[in-house]
Amino acid sequence: MPVQSKVFTYQIDGLSYIVTLYEQDGSFFSDITVVEGAMDVNAVYFGDDEFSGSSENLDGPLNMNGTRLDGERIQWDEAVALSDPGLGPEGEDKETYLQAGDTLTLELDIGSLDEVDIFGIRATSTTNDAGSIKAVSDDPEEPEEPEDPQDPTYEKLFFGEVFSDAGDPLGGTFILSEEPDPNPYSIPSLPEGTDPTFENYVSYYLSDAIGGDLSSLEGVVFYQTGEDGTQEEVFRIDAPEGGFQDPEDLFAAYEDALETQDLPAGTEGESLIMALSIEDASEDLAPEAEEETTEELELI
């Protein structure tokens, strides 16, 4: 993958092209792609925007005599001959003859893309009225580095060890993105300042603070706040027989789930089934707790 690039464009009636310069594996290349029309690329010229010293130039029909930029004579740092004018017996199959959609890739003898601020092409057999060009392109676009995709965040996860036949959470661990105030049932929450990404939830679940066991899981349920302000299930991951053997297995299942889910924040999903509260993992649910339908609680 290219690690850095510059893009030059050129357009006249009947002909347009794009030149993309980039670094790849420590070498530097230019991709010349015709967008409209056709041309036989006979030579390329390039250099920085410091017009001092002698200028490189090729003899005969490959020269760039008379080329100027903003009225100033251009001083070219490099000139590379590619082919003689004329399509010859190869015709349109000539390697340097490019039609719309064709790309010619050249390796450039430079040490940095900073050395190229101006790019020139000497071409014949072109589809503009003159039939040839001494084209000059400057002010290259420098594409912004793509931002790293943001990991989805969730307001609550349930690491489930027991589910009812209908899929309702019965036993396991709820973890919240932020600790509520008040928190009468002491539901665990991520440490303050922790982004509520799946990776961070898993790390906290496996930490000494929770002491979670991946092999005991039957599934993981993800929650967001719905349009009506209540927390709703967005999606869930079902564990394989015997639970997950290691975090990598769990993360792989999560990535598979993301590929099949549309998961923007606040997405409507199945209604959250509120957890019943218990105070001790070894005790049965108290009748009073069974009547609660509006409070959520960690089940262990």
Rank of each mutant, 00 (worst) to 15 (best):
G120I: 02
N57V: 14
L113T: 10
D102Q: 00
E115A: 08
E92W: 02
A100D: 04
R68I: 14
L98M: 12
S83F: 05
E90W: 00
T67Q: 13
G91C: 08
E90L: 12
I118E: 09
L113F: 01
D114P: 03
G101M: 03
E72V: 14
T103D: 15
G60A: 15
G71D: 09
R122I: 11
T67D: 02
E115K: 05
D109I: 05
L82D: 13
E95I: 11
L113A: 07
E56K: 15
A100E: 04
D93P: 00
E95M: 14
T103Y: 12
I110R: 04
G101E: 04
I110H: 09
D93A: 14
R122P: 02
G71Q: 12
E56N: 08
D114Q: 13
E72R: 13
F119P: 08
I110Y: 03
G111V: 00
Y97Q: 04
D102G: 03
L69W: 15
G111I: 03
G120A: 09
L82A: 04
G101S: 07
G88C: 11
S112M: 03
G91P: 01
L106Y: 09
S54E: 14
S83T: 12
L98F: 06
S55F: 03
P61M: 09
D77S: 11
D102W: 02
Q75A: 12
I110N: 06
N63F: 06
T105S: 12
E95W: 07
L108W: 01
L82Q: 10
T96V: 08
L98A: 14
E78M: 05
L69I: 09
P89R: 14
Q99S: 14
W76E: 06
D93L: 11
E92I: 10
P61I: 02
S55A: 08
T105V: 15
M64Q: 00
G60I: 00
E115C: 01
R122V: 08
Q75S: 10
L106Q: 11
G66D: 00
R122T: 07
G66T: 00
G86N: 10
G91Y: 04
G120Q: 02
Q75I: 15
V80I: 15
L62N: 11
M64D: 02
I121M: 07
T105I: 11
L104A: 01
Q75D: 02
R122F: 11
W76D: 05
K94H: 15
D93Q: 08
D84M: 08
Q99K: 15
L87C: 13
G71L: 01
G101F: 02
S112T: 13
L106K: 05
L108P: 05
Q99Y: 00
D109T: 10
G101R: 02
D93C: 04
P61A: 15
G60E: 12
E115Y: 02
I118K: 10
E72L: 11
Y97M: 04
I121V: 13
A100K: 05
L82F: 10
E90P: 07
D117W: 02
D109K: 09
T67G: 01
N63R: 06
G60F: 06
E92P: 00
S83G: 07
